[in-house]
C-alpha cells in the first residue's frame, strides 16, 4: 500500500482496526519488561533511588518533543500537500503531547525538590519546556475556537510551525546556557554516559511510552474521522430538512 492510499479515510480506518490490537499488545509487553527493569535498576551513586523518576520523566519529555515534531510534519502536510488526514493527525496529537509534557513538568518538579532543593527554577530548559506546554494549550484552544476543521487546521498548522522553533532551543538549552538541569546524557556524539544497568530500562521505557503514544494517536485519529463523518451527516440532515 502506498502512503498516498492513506489519504482515503475509509482505508485508513481499516488499517487502524487491524493495527491497534497488535500495537496495544506490543505496548503492554514493552511496559511489563520496562517496569520490571526499572524496579530492578540499582540506585544511582549520587541521586539514590530518585533516579527511578528518570524512567518516566525522560520518556515523557521525549514524547512531548516527538509529538510536536510529528505535528510539524503534519502541518507541512496540511499547508503544502493538503493531505486530508494531516490536520486530523495534528489535531489528535495535540492533547497527547500536552499530557506528556505535563507529566514531564510534574515529574521534573518532583525530582527537582529532593535533588536541587526546589520544585522549579526559571532556567532555560525548564522554561522552554513550559513554553512548549503553553503552546500546546494554545493549539487546543485554537482547535476548539474555530468550528470549520479545514480553517482550524490551517491556523493550527501555522502556529505549529512557529512552535517548532522552540524544539532546538529545548534540546540545546543545556549547552547554550548555564542551567541547573543536567546536560544530555543519552543522545550525545560520544555516546550515552549512563551505565547499562540504568540505560537499558530507560530505553525500554521510552519504547513502551512511544508504542503507547502511537496506539493512542491512531485510536484518536480514528475517533476524529468518525467525528467528521457525524458532522457531515448532520449537515446533510439539516440541508435535507431545509429543502423539505
Amino acid at each position: 500500500m502506498a502512503w498516498i492510499d492513506l489519504a482515503n479515510p475509509t482505508r485508513f480506518l481499516r488499517l487502524v482496526d487491524r493495527a491497534l490490537p497488535w500495537l496495544t499488545a506490543l505496548a503492554v509487553f514493552a511496559f511489563a519488561f520496562a517496569l520490571n527493569g526499572a524496579a530492578e535498576a540499582p540506585a544511582d551513586y549520587q541521586q539514590g533511588a530518585t533516579v527511578k523518576i528518570m524512567f518516566i520523566h525522560v520518556p515523557a519529555a521525549w514524547l512531548g518533543m516527538f509529538c510536536w515534531g510529528m505535528m510539524t510534519v503534519s502541518a507541512l502536510g496540511t499547508l503544502v500537500f493538503r493531505h486530508p488526514l494531516a490536520d486530523v493527525a495534528a489535531k489528535t496529537a495535540a492533547p497527547l503531547g500536552a499530557a506528556f509534557t505535563f507529566v514531564c513538568l510534574v515529574t521534573g518538579a518532583l525530582w527537582g525538590r529532593p535533588m536541587w532543593g526546589t520544585y522549579w527554577v526559571w532556567d532555560a530548559r525548564l522554561t522552554s519546556v513550559l513554553v512548549m506546554f503553553v503552546m500546546y494549550l494554545g493549539l487546543l484552544a485554537l482547535w476548539r475556537t474555530v468550528e470549520d476543521p479545514a480553517r482550524a487546521g490551517r491556523a493550527a498548522a501555522i502556529l505549529t510551525l512557529v512552535g517548532a522553533l522552540n524544539l532546538p532551543i529545548i534540546k540545546f538549552s543545556v549547552d547554550w546556557w548555564n542551567t541547573l538541569h543536567q546536560p544530555a546524557s543519552v543522545v550525545r556524539l560520544d555516546g550515552p554516559t549512563i551505565h547499562p544497568s540504568i540505560l537499558i530500562p530507560l530505553l525500554a521505557m521510552t519504547l513502551a511510552f512511544t508504542l503507547l503514544f502511537v496506539a493512542l494517536h491512531l485510536a484518536a485519529m480514528r475517533n476524529e474521522v468518525l467525528r467528521r463523518r457525524v458532522r457531515t451527516l448532520r449537515l446533510l440532515q439539516a440541508q435535507a430538512a431545509r429543502g423539505a
Binding site: 540506585a43 539514590g48 533511588a49 530518585t50 527511578k52 523518576i53 518516566i56 520523566h57 515523557a60 492533547p95 497527547l96 499530557a99 506528556f100 505535563f102 507529566v103 510534574v106 515529574t107 518532583l110 525530582w111 525538590r113 529532593p114 503507547l212 493512542l216 485510536a219 484518536a220 480514528r222 475517533n223 468518525l226
Partner: peptide, 29 residues
C-alpha cells in the same frame, strides 16, 4: 530511600494521566 514520597507521587501522577488518556480515547470512540 528517604525520598520515596517523590518517587511514588511521580509514578502515581503518570498513571493517572495515562489512564485518563486511555479512557478519553475509549469513551470518545
Amino acid at each position: 530511600g528517604p525520598h520515596a514520597v517523590f518517587i511514588v507521587a511521580s509514578y502515581a501522577v503518570t498513571l493517572v494521566i495515562v489512564v485518563a488518556l486511555i479512557a478519553w480515547v475509549w469513551i470518545d470512540h
